[in-house]
Design a protein around this nucleic acid. Structure first.
Lengths: 335, 335
DNA sequence: TTTGACAGGTTTACCGGTAACGTAGCTCCA
DNA sequence: TGGAGCTACGTTACCGGTAAACCTGTCAAA
């Protein structure tokens, strides 16, 4: 009974009187064996509780890895949680395992993670964003495996890209607010300057206002995690400096809700005196007493598309290099 | 220049005039070589951009795997995001890779995941909860690797456990509310009946009220993901049925905030007419206009403790089998 | 002078699969 | 009736590390 689970192909082969290779073929569901052999082998495999050794399989044949590396900025973000969920569901349905990491908006940490994950010889890699170190790009190009860059769309991906343009999100929100009559806009970001995607939204937003002849009045980027607190205190800081703002664009919905809480605590009328708009489309944003004006990002769909694109490439099927996933500006009652 | 990254130990050995084994020792930082050799080897390794092959390393020596499997109920939960972050930070600092999966509160899905992850011969596994299939337990026992069960504490873990008691959380909240004069309590859960940990809180809560002579009046368990919507509509449903409730305990903070939103929309005075309390301690809960009464769970600390316990066991260091991490009931302005 | 300990290596065997190729026996058709 | 083409296997070599055992020269102590 002891270490019964340590059985390998050879043990099963001996017990059933066939060769190791035949057992391998049966258990992989390949072809080249009779129904009778299949039955004998699977029965014996079940009896000894055979656990395949993917390490040996992936090592032995360079093409057989079922491992996919995924790196996101933060595991604690509600949005990326849904992206990971979309990826993980799609990949595990297709028989792949995911190796997940986070880099906290540091491309150096991302390179370290890529180095670690490539040493496992994965079938492919999914990264977030379009900004990577030269070392990361070299490593991935040399490894010659499919790479999908998600979240921020680029027209010249390392290999493939699935996502949307953060700059365009900012532009769209800016134009929307100008149409609504807003003129003195501010922005509150967080997660420090390393979050280039948040900054891209700021740039798009700013350029939309500038083009309309109303330059961005002020912005505040906090060195804090982009949550409710940062939104609350960020708005306090920004309004202390620029009390005449008539609308504030927040880095994300969590922060916007924090800002909303501050405005409410101060008796500032929203959207009357001050508009508050977010980004991301977290669930809370649409059920709060006042529905937040925000941009909804189809997170799960992005994850799913990235995973399916990667697998399509692995199987040699055709698949677009760049897949744009549309975001949707949802007007609420706060902007 | 082509496929220069495909260099292996043998290539480096040839180029530097030493044996493969010596190169292996140098690059692993083992001992048994001179400083001059070390320099020659590391220089050559850098020149050819050597990427180690962990597949081969883990395969070749059964003790060398640096892989740790982690399975949580859902990747989209804010709380588990922090747990994963705690685990991932601790493990990557210690040189391990994490393979993350989710099982959506299904122990059958958990078993499937364990089967898949064990086939990668990881160094250890971290699971959530104490409820597993017999197959899961057999698989892990036979594999003979360290296992940490997190989140819900058990006194008889498969191997190790790090967490707290959900039942006790419910009891503590129940007693707190009774002291505050609440008598007619309800509960709103979600994620269907499979979430045994949420149900344990309900049981603890219910038993506290029962012991005080005020049986739980009503409860509603929605077949929906435990988010803001479920809280909003859950409270609507529950109050339609039991309008005289004076306090409602929610599955988590997201749902409680949804409930708060419903109460506010209906003009129900909180906490005057109805108390609303949550569980989990999400950041939003403490900055909203009224601070939510809730139980704060030290998520990151649990992840960190689980990871460090696992590694301690791997290194043969002493480490407690059961580590209790205290939660904290934080009275707010809603209960 | 001998012994032995140690640094600094080398050699060999092996981990458990899989690809590639070989082969025996059978059927089927010209 | 010979051989082409199948099915159902078996054989061999190999993936890239690492453990373990085994060398070899040097230096110090006995």
């Amino acid at each position: 009974m002891e270490r019964i689970s340590k059985a390998n192909l050879e043990d099963i082969a001996r017990a059933t009187g066939v060769s190791k290779m035949t057992v391998s073929r049966v258990l992989r569901g390949a072809s080249g064996f009779s129904e009778e052999t299949r039955l004998r082998v699977t029965t014996e495999a079940a009896r000894v509780a055979y656990v395949p050794n993917r390490l040996a399989a992936a090592f032995g044949s360079d093409a057989a890895s079922t491992l996919v590396g995924v790196c996101v900025p933060r595991l604690t973000s509600g949005l990326f949680g849904h992206v990971l969920d979309g990826i993980d569901r799609a990949l595990s349905r297709l028989g792949y395992q995911t190796m997940i990491g986070s880099h906290n908006h540091s491309i150096e940490q991302e390179e370290a993670w890529v180095r670690a994950v490539v040493s496992w010889r994965p079938a492919g890699v999914i990264l977030s964003g379009r900004n990577h170190t030269g070392g990361t790009v070299d490593l991935l190009r040399n490894a010659g495996m499919p790479v999908v860059e998600i979240w921020d769309l680029t027209t010249s991906p390392i290999d493939m890209a699935v996502g949307f343009s953060h700059f365009d999100c900012g532009v769209e929100m800016g134009r929307f607010l100008i149409r609504k009559g807003r003129r003195r806009a501010g922005f509150i970001g967080a997660s420090n300057r390393a979050d280039v995607m948040g900054l891209a939204r700021l740039e798009g937003f700013s350029s939309a206002f500038a083009r309309a002849g109303h330059a961005l009045q002020d912005h505040e980027i906090l060195h804090d995690s982009p949550g409710f607190y940062a939104g609350y205190y960020g708005l306090e800081t920004l309004l202390a400096r620029s009390p005449t703002l008539d609308v504030v664009y927040f880095h994300n919905d969590e922060m916007a809700i924090g800002g909303l809480a501050y405005a409410q605590a101060q008796g500032i009328s929203v959207p009357g005196k001050l508009g508050i708009v977010g980004w991301g489309g977290m669930e809370a944003a649409s059920v709060l007493p006042r529905r937040l004006t925000t941009t909804v990002v189809p997170t799960t769909a992005i994850g799913k598309a990235a995973a399916e694109g990667l697998v399509a490439r692995l199987k040699g099927e055709h698949c677009e290099d760049v897949v744009a996933i549309a975001t949707r500006l949802v007007p609420g009652e706060t902007g």
